[in-house]
């Protein structure tokens, strides 16, 4: 089940009462909306054509591509143990095997996480040709985009936390 605690607060481990905690509390509305979007991207009420396991596994891949061990561990935990396919999708050495749909999804996740500047209309056409609906293309894009945002917010906060 999804943790209800704030993921960024947990991952960055900012001390309560510190000057940084005070600054973050000044933007409590933003941090709360960020956490609500996390739930909407990872565990929406209506997941459409992207399962919860796939979402957690893609988020884990994105964390690896961002060299973020703490988010990697977090999303690995979110995949859970019930479904072996999740851990396989999270492995960046795996590119989808013979599964046309999964291969197309993984290729797009890696592209948009790492090199969004290189994305073109042809990349969307590849997803459509693999049978991914337009609604699922938008869901996938929001997932990659949101996790990329969340990882950067945490990366910035860690640098603030470690200021001498």
């Amino acid at each position: 089940m999804l943790q209800l605690e704030d993921v960024i607060a947990k991952i960055t481990g900012i001390d309560r009462g510190s000057a940084l905690a005070e600054a973050v509390n000044g933007r409590a509305d933003i941090m709360s909306l960020t956490q609500q979007t996390y739930v909407a991207a990872l565990h929406p009420t209506d997941p459409g054509g992207l399962s919860y396991v796939e979402r957690a596994a893609f988020a884990c891949r994105i964390s690896v591509l961002n060299s973020d061990r703490e988010f990697e561990a977090h999303f690995h935990n979110l995949i859970g143990d019930n479904d072996a396919s999740g851990a396989r999708i999270a492995d960046i050495g795996f590119v989808g095997g013979h599964d046309v749909r999964l291969s197309a999804l993984i290729r797009h996740v890696d592209l948009v996480a790492q090199n969004p500047k290189n994305a073109t209309e042809g990349d969307i056409k590849r997803l459509q040709a693999a049978g991914v609906s337009d609604a699922d293309i938008v869901r996938l894009s929001e997932l990659v985009a949101f996790v990329s945002y969340q990882i950067r917010v945490a990366a910035g906060l860690r640098l603030m936390r470690d200021l001498a």
Binding site: K117, A119, I124, Y149, G156
Partner: peptide, 14 residues
């Protein structure tokens, strides 16, 4: 800047 890492990944790819 992080928010635009999000927005760019939608606007430029979709």
């Amino acid at each position: 800047s992080s928010l635009f890492g999000w927005a760019n990944r939608l606007m430029h790819t979709l």
